[in-house]
Design a protein around this nucleic acid. Sequence first.
DNA 1: CATGTTTGCGTAATCGTTTACACAGAGAAT
DNA 2: ATTCTCTGTGTAAACGATTACGCAAACATG
Lengths: 332, 332
Amino acid sequence: MSAEVRLQDVADAAGVSIATASRALAGKDRVSRKTQTLVKRTAERLGYQVNAAARALREGSNRTIGMIIPVVGNPFYAQVVHAVEAELQEQDLELIIADSHGEIEREARRLDLLLGGRVEGVIVVPSDAQGSSEALIKTAARIPLVQLDRRVEGLASDFIGVDNDRGIDLVIAHLREQGVRSIVYIGANDNTSVGRERRLAFARASAGLDVHEPIFGNFSREYGLEAGAALVARGELPDAIVCGDDLIAVGVLGALRAAGKRVPRDTLLTGFDDTLLAEITDPPLTSVVQPIAALAREAIRALVLRTEDRDAPTFYSRIAPQLVVRESTSRP
Amino acid sequence: MSAEVRLQDVADAAGVSIATASRALAGKDRVSRKTQTLVKRTAERLGYQVNAAARALREGSNRTIGMIIPVVGNPFYAQVVHAVEAELQEQDLELIIADSHGEIEREARRLDLLLGGRVEGVIVVPSDAQGSSEALIKTAARIPLVQLDRRVEGLASDFIGVDNDRGIDLVIAHLREQGVRSIVYIGANDNTSVGRERRLAFARASAGLDVHEPIFGNFSREYGLEAGAALVARGELPDAIVCGDDLIAVGVLGALRAAGKRVPRDTLLTGFDDTLLAEITDPPLTSVVQPIAALAREAIRALVLRTEDRDAPTFYSRIAPQLVVRESTSRP
DNA sequence: CATGTTTGCGTAATCGTTTACACAGAGAAT
DNA sequence: ATTCTCTGTGTAAACGATTACGCAAACATG
């Protein structure tokens, strides 16, 4: 039980007014040294904890930010959440997370819920480049919003993401060095900005190579398995397979193995994101390292800036990734 | 931007008092059909959103629960978060998550922050069986708390976890069927209840087999690599290696591969948790499937019950896992 | 000594909701 | 016609913290 102790109780116990007690604890207003320590000690003794709701109501802010992601289960997003959370702890901010399960209306519903002063700002990884647009625009009109990793069309909010062009460039330059002549891309469709960007980047960067017909689905292992099987069914494999992310690559690898094909002997294979998965497959995957910590830091910085000045110029930031080379692309 | 619209504004626009407006929206008190729809429509038109802080202050609750876990980056916990979040959505509850990074004082600090009425209850996966005890006891005295997956010593709070005994039993029974004679356990130390339980379960269930000296560290791939190398260095491998979780198993597998040993040819290998990892290694790992959805559901149910009645008898629940057999234990 | 200035603290208003209480009007019962 | 019960609505008091404003005492300045 421990009857909730209010500020009034602390004030009473310390023999001061509630105003003084508040000031003493805040410590940034004029209070005598003596009363300050007295109040602080009393608060400590009574186990006083400020009531977050009351403070939020009065202050108009609650030191909490929201985050909406397609699915925490995806190792990449799990790591993003981890990084964002770590960064927020530095600033004594809380994190409310909501999983949209990649569904547009669920996403919209969650955003609505977060609106009522529940959070000061929101970081969102939109689930669909078009479909998420409406809800995001509505939200952004009310509270600071930054898009992370992916973005929707028609919303000029702050955005932080990896430089997908550069990432794909790194992959293809590396493959060319390995002597690759023919190549194929297995990625995600244009439903997400990331899918679209990587697709276009691949099309551009692969000029001059023998490019096989690409295959597009979504960022999942299941799809990778399917796509891998489809690729094998075509007959001859290209020299290298570039995948839209690690999950797809893992799926493709599984399909190749099931068909008796070996990597890197029969074809080279690359992923994107450099999640834990890339390290544990056999062979380990060459992948593009997302600068997750930097992404998280920048996203929060953008959010804080936006909170301070709603009319500051929009922040559009692309962070350069790096390539990590592993056995899946070591020349046979 | 879009001047916050208050309930008063809706009331004014609808030409009723603020009390009536509130009742109309709540819909559970006596209001005429006509005013009710009028108010609702007006609220809709003005884009009214109740202010969460004000409501929380008044109601004394905020429909938010907190969750503290050792590390979201761990695929198993990422899935747990996903399941808990999905379950909470059903009940229109929000989820605040905090990552303790496995550090005791960080965990304590986060719990303190959550205390001030910020959440109605908290689900925690304690980072240390002894070290986390104090902070958890303090928290449990103030708000409903349920321990998930792991528990600390000296706190009789509600608890939901997998039946580790049964899980290990399933693994060993299966290995015996495969004709295993000699066996070793590579798991985590007693710092967590899970580590301890699995260790003891193994010791009990392996009776009658040729049990090699076990190796204990923590639940991580890095440790698995290390332990695997140490095992190889001993010279001869046992017929089977039972690991404390998938991460360790993945590490051990890597170490075996580096040493030129093959699974299941040279030894059988098992994991625990059945995360995505178990499916994508080569060979895929036999593992114990955690009933994650059930765990999440039960945890929330316990929390809700506890919220309704602080003095209800303590809930201690063990959910039975299942075994999923994959190639890592298919008899050579 | 008279007049500022600073310091420390208390009173009361405020944030936006919900809801106990009161009250007016409409029927119903006498 | 008088009293009684419902219904629907409004007035005002919470919830707990922060802070503008004001006042008294202490101190400084002329």
